[in-house]
Simulated scan of single mutants.
Amino acid sequence: MEELLFYAFAALAISSALLVVSLKNTARALFLFFVTLFAMAGLFLFALADFVAITQILVYVGGVLILMIFAFMLSNKELLKDLQSTSSRFIAMPNIQSLLLSIAFLALMTYGIIAWQQQTPEWIMQNIKMNQVIQPTDNNISQLGVKFMTYYILPFEVISIFLLMALIGASQLSRKEGDE
């Protein structure tokens, strides 16, 4: 089951990332980017990097992507009108696809929850036998903070510059055509 979930998240991340760069519709590309970031957070969970997964969701989804969506909504009113007028029916082809994808994802999650409740995965049992289990009292956040500010200071600063560039890009996109 773990391998199935891992490959499902990996396939979702790869396919949605490929669609992000190949779509010409910016609104759909932004929402697929949202799916890509969540799939990457799922992959981080498989690497037992729960703090990185939560940071991925908070920083990238909560910050960068929301800024990009706001900039898009403020700058492309004609594209938003096209999206609203494409389908007047309740169930159109994209709605059916999204409904099928949602049902498949719900079924996969339900199966995963049921399978984990019935039997503990082998890799967890091996870690329990070797006494390598992270306890709730372990303070991993302070260890991560020390690592970020000592050993990983360069990647940490690169990420901060990336976030600054994303903020500047979002504000640039939200400007009107006549502003200089």
Score class of each variant (00 low, 15 high):
138 D>A: 08
114 I>E: 11
113 I>G: 07
145 G>F: 12
121 P>I: 02
134 I>Y: 05
96 I>M: 13
133 V>Q: 11
110 T>S: 05
121 P>C: 04
116 W>R: 15
122 E>M: 04
145 G>D: 13
125 M>F: 00
140 N>E: 14
110 T>P: 00
125 M>A: 03
144 L>N: 10
126 Q>F: 00
131 N>C: 09
113 I>N: 03
130 M>G: 10
98 S>E: 12
105 F>S: 09
99 L>T: 00
146 V>R: 14
116 W>H: 14
135 Q>P: 05
122 E>P: 00
116 W>G: 06
98 S>G: 05
128 I>M: 05
115 A>G: 10
120 T>W: 05
129 K>L: 14
144 L>W: 11
134 I>K: 08
120 T>G: 08
103 I>D: 03
109 M>E: 06
92 A>G: 12
100 L>D: 01
106 L>H: 03
130 M>A: 15
130 M>D: 12
128 I>K: 07
126 Q>M: 04
126 Q>R: 01
137 T>R: 12
114 I>T: 09
97 Q>M: 12
134 I>H: 08
133 V>R: 02
92 A>V: 08
114 I>R: 06
134 I>V: 14
141 I>V: 15
93 M>T: 14
133 V>T: 10
129 K>E: 14
98 S>M: 12
113 I>D: 02
137 T>E: 15
95 N>A: 15
123 W>S: 10
104 A>P: 00
